[in-house]
Design a binder for these strands. Structure first.
Lengths: 251, 251
DNA sequence: ATTTATTGATTGAATATGATTGACTTTGGT
DNA sequence: ACCAAAGTCAATCATATTCAATCAATAAAT
């Protein structure tokens, strides 16, 4: 058996079982302990596995980011619902803007079977978009600490060079009179630019964002449709529904 | 049996089984080891297969586990050495351009304790740069499938809006007369733009890249300093060292 | 007839392998 | 806590396999 085959086999074994003993690897591959150990040191150097006494375990790979989406907290499930709903507004052939943020990121897997062109300022989004084979453009700009969202004048200018059929934004505050708000003024500028250059705009927000007012103003309440889940008070619903489209997803 | 026939057969064998040994190929084709090896070198040059010790494996497709291994398989430690050396050329306060690619990515952890501003077209780079608290700007552009490198006219234009003290590029081919080359013309354009806007330029390449010529031209050999590890033949070293700076790291 | 291409055999070098050794780690009993 | 036995480890060695380079023989083309 070839070296590379054996190493692939070891990785395969580890994928099935979290920890595999050297002895078991010997049996499966028919190789001697020495050889297996050598393979393990190699695979460890390549940062693919972690050695433990008596065997090895799979190192969690950076590639397996998708688990990030699969987190099963209540919050994540809500985001997933909102994202799914948002994608129903997307048509084949659309050019869309995806704002940075986890909610918009959840849209990506559902976008896979539509033929769309996506522009985004979210770095984590790009990797996921590529993985799902979606044609992706990235605006330029300064990468913000923490979220790696692209912001700044360069980002705003770059957005100006595109026209979108639809844009999808995350937001921190939704308020009747103060409109949409977000903590970072630089991010607000980027969101505004996206709104300016898009035919129709959607804001994705869980119910906790309603009634909140954040530092930087993004837009008036009637400048974007809102997609959210149940939990918003009926009186608030009534008022806002008069000003803009408000999609509420039943839980 | 004709050469073509035999090579087709080899490819067919590889399609059935991800990895095939030289020995098995001999049996199937009736040819000698020498002949099979010659075929393999040819097929490897045509980028159809990848050789491994004792046999060959199919390149392309199967975006599963193999690629992960393949990617990290070669020269991981070498890349680390090259990256480390490259960082020694970086001064505090520099504005630098980091080309997409795994070698330049290895530079990032070592950049952490310098105060630099980094511009890059590599999406995976951005996350890492942010993690290490480095001030990061991203050029815009189209995200290339597979590597997520940013390319296209927008990328080239965006680079034009910056001036770098130093730029660090990965490269596929280094050839005395043909200079630096890379498979993707669009990536070549981006690299050229980086070279144009940088005071001093460094190419990071392992020794296997020397003597190679890839499809798209990037620059002449004297337009960038080269950082590599031992393994390059002394005669090649002599010749190239006359044309440009050539840093060779002892193993 | 001469050149060119293809092939198989041979070579020393590079690489991979299995067994052995002594040091280290874990386990289980006192 | 201690010790001893069993298991596991890295390092080393000799062997076996695989490699690229070279050579000579044969077949095809000029």
């Amino acid at each position: 058996m070839l070296t590379i085959e054996r190493q692939e086999l070891i990785l395969a074994l580890l994928k099935e079982k979290e920890i595999v003993s050297v002895h078991h690897m010997c049996e499966e591959t028919g190789a001697s302990e020495s050889t297996i150990r050598r393979d393990l040191t190699e695979l460890e150097n390549k940062q693919l596995i972690k050695r433990v006494h008596g065997g090895a375990s799979l190192l969690k790979k950076k590639r397996e980011e998708p688990t990030l989406l699969e987190k099963t907290t209540q919050h994540q499930q809500e985001k997933e619902l909102i994202a799914k709903k948002a994608v129903t507004f997307v048509d084949d052939g659309d050019s869309i803007y995806l704002d940075a943020g986890t909610t918009t990121m959840s849209m990506i897997p559902h976008l896979a079977d539509k033929s769309v062109v996506v522009v985004t300022n979210g770095i984590p989004h790009v990797q996921l978009l590529i993985e799902y084979g979606i044609e992706t453009y990235v605006i330029g700009g300064k990468a913000k600490k923490g979220t790696a969202a692209l912001i700044g004048t360069k980002a705003v200018e770059a957005i100006g060079e595109y026209r979108f059929d639809k844009c999808f934004l995350g937001i921190n505050g939704i308020h009747m009179s103060r409109g949409f708000t977000t903590p970072d003024p630089e991010e607000a500028n980027v969101k505004q630019a996206a709104l300016r250059n898009s035919q129709s705009c959607f804001v994705l927000a869980d119910p906790t964002k309603f009634g909140e007012v954040s530092f930087a103003n993004v837009a008036n309440i009637d400048q974007a449709a809102i997609i959210t889940t149940e939990g918003i008070s009926t009186e608030q619903f009534e008022k806002i529904a008069k000003l803009t489209t408000l999609e509420v997803i039943p839980q």
